[in-house]
Design a protein around this nucleic acid. Structure first.
Lengths: 335, 335
DNA sequence: TGGCTACATCGATAATTGTAGGCATAATCT
DNA sequence: AGATTATGCCTACAATTATCGATGTAGCCA
């Protein structure tokens, strides 16, 4: 691999001059520029970004820690991130942590050693103290789809409470009153917010939220399936279910079908996230859309502002609006 | 950010000694090691991987060029790649090219400037000459899910012909004779191989492959939907369809349902890839499994062998076996 | 016309952070 | 004592950027 010195020799100039040309500095004559460009082309010279990073103290790379790219919730976020990053001249290191604290910490350490310019955490489980550490050292980072109770940081989230409220209000507007909720895991802040939205919507419309109508799930099909089986066996079964995400809803769908019932004829169903498969004709789930691509895009934009020193002192906290997507899993209550 | 010199000063030793400790070299006494470790901890020192890369000429990072992480075909491959890479101490740069040659080339250039140790191309559209270039310079890379006609390179693919053969044979074994095929785009080598497998299976069983039974799709729902509408309007419609991938099959499913027909009662349907959503209860598509996670894993393993100089001179070309996954979209032909 | 300033152009050199090989010194073993 | 081994330091890189100084030339004024 040729170096800048090889180029300089071949063009008969000093390496300083070559460097000036590569970094678009003024005060280099047209003819020497020509000579140098010719030498570069002939040698197939490619500037060494590693050496450049060392002296500039900037790597033009961003670390991305997500739990699992295999989870259909993430690819669109990642795509949004990578598109914006690439547009701004940055590359992305992708790291799957499986939402395990130790793995997140290990990746964090690695990314810092590799001197990434900033880090994006999506649905991070990492401890508050670690995050506070980063903040204290003024290291640029941003959270996507997670907030921190005590630390002031940049983040991009969707308004989970409002989304849940929308979902439940939709069901209420269709005449449903006995509405069940399958929650996410208790330690996910988003899940709690959705529960809150459910309860608020019920209360605002004077409906009782029977404790037996709220079941805890795990954000996966299996959890939705099991929770729904319990719900269906209740002496007074619900006429509608609001699941805290689409996977739970799909599990619910299966349990409902197995019980010989139909959606939406016998029971209405709403999910959350608007994962791609929710839109498949055979599923056609009414759900709450999260603008995932946009979330990734905006998070990256904010992060890069921070990295390049254009950000202000205050944290940028973007709360995007969710959107009700009505498909065919919900129906006006008969009678 | 403290440097190795700061550590050396605080520990009262030279930076060479600190370096020795960091790189696990022998001949350093227990007590100086203690002193240095203490200084490192107190300062929160993190070795600068950029500087290390510069002198070692190794970055411990791999570039990954895929068309689009949003396509459900890719996340599992990526996860396999990242898992193996991480296990071996490498990080992954993820690059979405949308299968556009120019974008692939731009990313390639960037990755080479950043001095990645190797590159993985999945379903690459990049030109043969460019690939041959890499090979000539002895730069480590590997192709996943794509082969090159003329250049000898490492690759990992699934046996597309055998997979298609399996799919069609399954339909034939159920008594079907009039079997249609929805192909992928003509410029994808995998699609051609699947067509080949279809034709071979038909011929081997003495069945005619009527030209009107073969429709070209685009590997997406829409293509499957349109192709199927045409197939259903044939004077003598097929009793079974083999779609060249699962998305085509899902589009076919929709067209079939819209025509008032049922799968598998009226028509049997087989996909290809075994994308996650093919297994959903409401879809339950019989399909051909590609071991995508394993493909990513093995490709990375081979690549790292190359990078670390343990690979032999001959190209490593792995052809993994596909597998028939029988679900409920196929059924014995009545009568 | 001599001398001065201003600017265009290029090169020499230091700096970035860390690794590796050689070398000096001290300790231990024949 | 001489050889060997253990320990730690010195120094030369790795590839680039950035600062500053050197050189030459043109324009301008007295």
């Amino acid at each position: 691999m040729p170096t800048i010195i090889d180029v300089a020799k071949r063009a008969g100039v000093s390496k300083s001059t070559v460097s000036k040309i590569l970094t678009d500095k003024p005060y280099v004559s047209h003819e020497t520029r020509e000579k140098v460009m010719k030498a570069i082309a002939e040698l197939g010279y490619r500037p060494n970004a590693i050496a450049r990073s060392l002296v500039r103290n900037v790597t033009k790379t961003i670390g991305l820690i997500i739990s699992d790219i295999t989870n259909p919730f993430f690819p669109e976020i990642v795509r949004g991130i990578e598109d914006k990053a690439s547009e701004m001249g940055y590359n992305i290191f992708i790291c799957n942590s499986d939402a395990k604290v130790e793995r997140e910490e290990a990746y964090l350490e690695l990314l810092l050693e590799k001197r990434v310019d900033g880090i994006i955490f999506t649905s991070a489980r990492i401890t508050d103290t670690r995050i506070a550490d980063l903040r204290r050292h003024n290291f640029p980072f941003i959270l996507v789809s997670r907030t921190l109770p005590d630390v002031q940081t940049d983040y991009v989230v969707v308004d989970n409470r409002a989304g849940a409220y929308l979902a439940v209000e939709h069901l209420i507007s269709l005449g449903h009153q006995r509405i069940a909720h399958i929650t996410g895991p208790k330690d996910a802040s988003g899940a709690l917010d959705r529960l809150w939205g459910y309860q608020k919507a019920m209360a605002d419309h004077g409906l009782k939220t029977d404790a037996e109508l709220v079941k805890e799930g795990d954000f996966r099909e299996q959890g939705g399936y099991l929770a729904t089986k319990e719900l269906l066996s209740l002496s007074s079964a619900p006429t509608a279910i609001f699941a805290a995400n689409d996977f739970l809803a799909i599990g619910a769908l299966q349990a409902i079908n197995e019980a010989g019932l139909e959606v939406p004829e016998d029971i209405s169903l709403v999910g959350f996230d608007n994962v791609h498969l929710a839109g498949l004709t055979r599923i056609n789930l009414t759900t709450i859309n999260q603008p995932r691509y946009k979330m990734g895009l905006m998070a990256t934009e904010v992060l890069i502002e921070r990295i390049e020193g254009r950000g202000g002192p205050d944290p940028v906290q973007l709360v995007l609006e969710p959107e009700l997507v009505i498909r065919s899993s919900t129906k006006r209550l008969a009678g």
